[in-house]
């Protein structure tokens, strides 16, 4: 259970989040959508304590992250897996070591088991045979998938995906969507997905939050969002620019 209560965040004069609140129940999957630059990635970073809110609280399984120091946060983060928007792979390591890293850190020492689990993850993200490649040899989409493998290999109970399918071709996107759904259903995992891909949001998100200008504009079940008659929402999900609004800006 993740509870976000009235968090606000600014960077200098740039007010990014204004009193954002939402809850995510255990086993639920939530999609966060919204225009570029509205603070989606910033919200996600607050959930694992990578950023601290200026005001408001974030609680994970009842424990407030605000009062924790970095070492206490480390233990809370053990239950999380996170895919960064830019993949954030360790460029001093090859693909295998990147995926093995969270396993080793969570205390798995048996090399045979590590190898077996890393290989299995590479198969799941449809990239078998690249384990000894350096990161510089991978394309952007391939990095994203290695990042995904690294985020879920240690079987976390809460997974945060920042744009998992951006930059992937439609076929791979589709299989990544399926993978995320499979992971969610198999282990009763809580997942939070930021996405610009409405098809993917519809398929993964049971609930959808539409973030607009740093505020939760709408928080509703998926079909409600996709059938919404609110012009702001319907234009966003259909991907149509509002010329009047653009002119006003």
């Amino acid at each position: 259970m993740i509870e976000v209560d009235n968090i606000s965040k600014s960077f200098g004069n740039n007010v990014v989040l204004r009193e954002v609140s939402f809850r995510v129940a255990e086993g639920e999957s939530l999609a966060i959508i919204g225009r570029s630059g509205t603070g989606k990635s910033v919200v996600l970073k607050h959930l694992v304590g990578l950023m601290m809110p200026d005001a408001g609280t974030v609680r994970v399984q009842g424990a407030s992250l605000n009062e924790m120091n970095e070492r206490e946060l480390l233990t809370v983060r053990r239950q999380f897996g996170m895919l960064f928007q830019g993949a954030a792979l360790f460029d001093s390591m090859n693909v295998f070591e990147n995926i093995a890293f969270p396993l080793r850190r969570s205390g798995v020492t048996d090399e045979a088991e590590i190898e077996q689990r890393v290989m299995e993850m590479l198969r799941l993200v449809e990239m078998p045979g690249v384990e000894s490649n350096l990161l510089s040899e991978l394309s952007g989409g391939m990095r994203k998938r290695v990042g995904l493998a690294r985020a879920i290999v240690h079987r976390p109970t809460i997974i945060l995906y920042d744009e998992p399918t951006t930059g992937l071709d439609p076929v791979v996107s589709d299989s990544i969507d399926q993978l995320m759904r499979r992971v969610r259903d198999q282990f009763n995992i809580t997942s939070i997905v930021i996405t610009h891909d409405m098809r993917s949001a519809r398929r993964i998100g049971q609930r959808i939050i539409y973030l607009r200008e740093g505020q939760v504009y709408l928080d509703a079940p998926a079909d409600e969002v996709f059938n919404s008659s609110d012009p702001v929402i319907s234009r966003f999900v259909k991907g149509e620019a509002d010329l009047k609004e653009e002119e006003l800006l």
């Binding site: 970073k45 694992v48 990578l50 970095e70 070492r71 946060l73 480390l74 233990t75 983060r77 053990r78 999380f80 897996g81 996170m82 960064f84 830019g86 954030a88 792979l89 360790f90 460029d91 890293f101 969270p102 850190r105 969570s106």
Partner: peptide
């Protein structure tokens, strides 16, 4: 470089100080 490419944040999410 690790900081600007979020590798340090990634490290922190993987329970590593």
């Amino acid at each position: 470089t690790m900081r600007v490419t979020e590798q340090i944040d990634a490290l922190r999410t993987m329970a590593t100080h």
